[in-house]
């Protein structure tokens, strides 16, 4: 008997799990609840949950239909509070992009400094230790109050949450560069800047990229919550708006989309990480 490759077998298991999940979901939400007797005029005023006992949880077919509906018209614009899911995603991605790049431009130089200078490392350590565990959303009221702009506040929240993993990873990567390489550089009388860019940076790059990958994941998690809090635009607002309407179908659809985009962002960083990895 010919053995199937590992990837092939994994794919089969994945598909089986997916089908089992969809089936379980379908069966679980098919149920008909208790229906009370009511006059037709009264029934007209009530929703399907009350009149037909339909489960409030949507089945996979409902979600599939909804998803198709959104994919068909991703960029409609019915006014400031009702835009297509594509436009909402674009808003969220733009906010994450700006906040994240801002964080990169701060975290990597500071991380370098901490990694290269034991003095700065000790001096900055208490601040980092205190600021790092703060939930990014806890900054939100403060940001709204001081920045006085909800769009910039969400960018600030993204900035602050992406900062720490990158900074710490950069510092760690820089300080963990092998002593032999630094000694070789010293022997060859390489200047400080040249040493930083030609020896330390390439050596620390894989660790830095790992930090960046963690950060983008966190940033994407946080933007949804931040937009739910502030409202206006973005995929988080979309979830909130549909929750407001108790439309679980739309919420589940949005969850799927959020997951997909998060995966894509992560894969992009993973691709970059591969480029800078080197064999020891």
């Amino acid at each position: 008997m010919k053995t199937v490759s590992l990837a092939g077998r994994a794919a089969v298991v994945s598909i089986a799990l997916f089908v089992a999940f969809i089936l379980a979901w379908h069966v679980a939400t098919r149920g008909i609840g208790s229906v009370q007797q009511m006059s037709p005029e009264y029934a007209k005023l009530m929703g399907v949950t009350a009149t037909q006992g339909k489960s409030a949880m949507p089945g996979p077919l409902d979600v599939g239909a909804k998803l198709w509906e959104h994919l068909k018209r991703p960029f409609y614009d019915n006014g400031p509070n009702d835009k297509g899911v594509g436009i909402q995603l674009a808003y969220s991605i733009a906010r994450v992009g700006v906040g994240y790049l801002l964080a990169v431009s701060f975290a990597i130089p500071i991380g370098f400094l901490i990694g290269m200078s034991p003095l700065m490392s000790r001096a900055l350590d208490p601040f980092i230790q205190i600021l790092k565990p703060i939930s990014p959303l806890a900054w939100m009221p403060l940001a709204l109050y001081t920045i006085k702009d909800s769009g910039l506040s969400s960018i600030f929240v993204i900035f602050i949450c992406s900062l720490w993993p990158m900074m710490i990873n950069t510092a760690f990567g820089v300080s963990a560069v092998r002593k032999e390489w630094l000694n070789v550089a010293k022997t060859l009388e390489v200047g400080t800047f040249r040493r930083a860019f030609t020896v330390i940076l390439p050596a620390a790059a894989p660790t830095i990229l790992t930090g960046m990958r963690i950060s983008i994941g966190i940033a994407w998690l946080v933007i949804v919550a931040a937009e739910m809090l502030v409202g206006g635009t973005g995929i988080g607002y979309f979830v909130w708006n549909e929750w407001n309407n108790l439309s679980i179908t739309n919420v589940v659809t949005a969850i799927l989309v959020i997951g997909l985009v998060g995966m894509v962002l992560d894969q992009i960083l993973a691709r970059f990480a591969k480029l800078v990895t080197f064999p020891e």
Binding site: P80, L144, K148, D149, S150, L229, G231, G232, Y237, N241
Partner: peptide
């Protein structure tokens, strides 16, 4: 006039105080 839907009373207060 653009009427903007807002998530809660505290946010509407802050956004008005912010002059958004």
């Amino acid at each position: 006039v653009e009427v903007i839907k807002t998530a809660g009373w505290a946010v509407i207060r802050d956004k008005t105080l912010n002059k958004e």
